[in-house]
Amino acid sequence: MIKFSNVQLGYGGRPVLNALNFEIQKGDFFGIVGPNGAGKTTLLKAILGLLKPVKGEISFLNIKRGHKKRIGYVPQHASVDEIFPIKVLDMVLMGRYAKMGILKRPKKRDYTIAEEMLKNVGMEGMAEQNYRELSGGQKQRTLIARAMVGEPDTLILDEPVEGMDIQGEIAIMELIKNLHTEFTLTVILVSHDLNIMANYVKTLSIIHNNTLKLGPVDSILNEETMAKVYGAEVKIINISGQKVIISKIK
């Protein structure tokens, strides 16, 4: 469980998010949305431990004494530099480097875990391919496998379906959903795609007016809140149990 106690986040003395008091429960599928520049990445960096809070405390509960927090981080695939000459298997193995410890080389067990995870994410037979020659969807799957081989209990993803077509979006989200169930993971997801969030996450948080409003998707995702947060009129309709969010053109 991750607990935010009266947290303020910001850069260079300028606060971006204030009065954050919430908990992310173990096993939750937690989504973070908000308009551009609202502070989604700032919040994500704070959870990842890359940004120290200006005020307050972020604590990881239920971690055994002497154990480290086990986070698997999946950045946007575009943020991983394509000039790097690396094959898919080596990219995935990189997720186990911290586990191996310094002065140690990958062992047979590490290779087995990496190959197994590539199979789990639908990348079987692609271990020897060059990472830079993969499609956007395949790169995303590789980065998910890299995060998963560290055997995390929390998987954090930054815009996992950014720049993908509808088919690719669904495939990646279904994969994340399956991993969430199969490995009993806590999943924290940042996305600007409300349709994806509406249909996959359990708890939704919206950043508005420098703070966070959160709750079960159905209670948060309504036309009134959307109008307040995004300043645009939206219509939420239900098609065969699937939520669709359409913005009204003035």
């Binding site: 990842l48 431990g49 890359l50 480290k68 986070i71 698997g72 981080y73 950045p75 943020s79 991983v80 530099d81 790097f84 690396i86 990189m94 997720g95 480097y97 911290a98 586990k99 191996m100 310094i102 002065l103 140690k104 080389r105 890299r146 995060a147 560290g150 954090i156």
Partner: peptide
């Protein structure tokens, strides 16, 4: 030679390296 893993990890993806515990 000894710390090839660490150097390649921070070169390729600094934030991933940091969050993974390196």
């Amino acid at each position: 030679f000894l710390f090839y893993k660490e150097f390649t990890a921070v070169t390729l993806d600094f934030e991933m390296a940091r969050t993974s515990g390196i």
